[in-house]
Design a protein around this nucleic acid. Structure first.
Lengths: 205, 205
DNA sequence: GTCTATACGCAGATAGAC
DNA sequence: GTCTATCTGCGTATAGAC
């Protein structure tokens, strides 16, 4: 059944009750597991929703969403870190959940789909404002940004010296250096057209 | 102790012997776990070494190393997939190993450090050849490429429709679109200078 | 080298007292 | 709501026969 590494005894000890008392609140271990995952997904979604709502420019929106994901994981780390001293990565948990319980797997897939769509919208807006390289397809880029960030979170759990909160600014500026627009928008295009027109007019004369 | 999800009974069944016979070959479960992780790290390192050796251009080298990582995970998936029907991601295994056993954790850290250094060298070479954007710092970029790829592998285990082997070309071209050089290198710069010189000579006459 | 038999501990889970 | 007592099953591990 569910997370084999976390026993009911551990859970009971942590919240200060005895093991059998858990069965008053939950049907079985699977129910504890399911509700935990749903709670985590719910609070992550809330956070992303708030982040997107509060920001104005497309650049700000993208950074707010990514900061939201990092912040969420940091909160989890601190929350659990007081007991086990190690930062905790929730992706193995989500992976296991989606492996064993199809309904949860579906919710997790939906979570990713929503996140991807949210990023896609921000990217399209940013491309419309000539802030992001137009040659990058929004759906692929959204997926790759999610992968990039989750990979960084994964690596930061391996490597304690890689603290995402301290290098956040550096990471973001690297990201913009990579995905930032290479053209300067329509203003300069019309400027170039004007020059070309002037030159062609000039050669005619 | 080690991987709680995989019991000795499962291992014994899989290789066709009885459970107690495992104790003839290994001292205990921990030894099985340790040697497995070391075997995996070793074969991954061999693969990366071969990939880097066989390639000529810096672009080829980078793609070969990344393909090596993807290929390694695919092989693992097929290898285990015949029994459990699901692609397997080794990062949770590495994570657990580094969590429980400090010596293994050190080896895993070294593996990542080597990989990062290998990528860094390729990136420096590519920047010297004006193939990769010079404004990206090689160490950060190496780390972020590793994160990007591991994130993609992680997501592909969640989402079966995301098959890295089929979209490999698309991923790579996106990567180059992001990190590719924005300047044209000294060769074209001198070409431009020559043109400018020619024009100025022309106007002189 | 591989087996059967067996020891011991801890997991999840239930019954029933307070 | 929380507890003590207890059940059952599976885990790792060992002893000793073939």
């Amino acid at each position: 059944m569910g997370t084999k590494k976390t026993s009911l005894t551990m859970i009971a000890d942590e919240i200060g009750i005895k093991k059998p008392s858990l069965y008053y609140h939950f049907k079985n271990k699977e129910e504890i597991f399911n509700e935990s995952v749903e709670y985590i997904l719910g609070s992550m979604n809330n956070r992303l929703h708030d982040a997107n709502k509060a920001s104005t420019s497309s650049k700000e929106a993208l950074e707010a969403v990514l900061s939201g994901i990092i912040g969420f994981h940091s909160d989890l780390s601190v929350f659990i870190g007081e007991l086990y001293q190690k930062p905790v990565n929730i992706y193995p948990l989500l992976h296991e959940a989606s492996y064993h319980f199809p309904e949860l797997g579906l919710e997790i897939k939906n979570h990713y789909a929503e996140l991807q769509e949210q990023l896609e919208q921000i990217i399209r807006r940013a491309q419309g404002e000539y802030v992001i390289n137009q040659r990058l397809s929004p759906d692929s880029l959204a997926l790759e940004i999610i992968a990039w960030l989750e990979g960084l979170i994964l690596l930061s759990t391996f490597n304690p010296s890689l603290d995402l909160n301290t290098i956040r600014q550096k990471i973001f500026s690297n990201l913009w250096e990579m995905i930032g627009s290479r053209e300067s928008g329509p203003s300069e295009n019309t400027f170039r057209k004007k020059i070309a027109k002037t030159i062609s007019l000039g050669t005619k004369w």
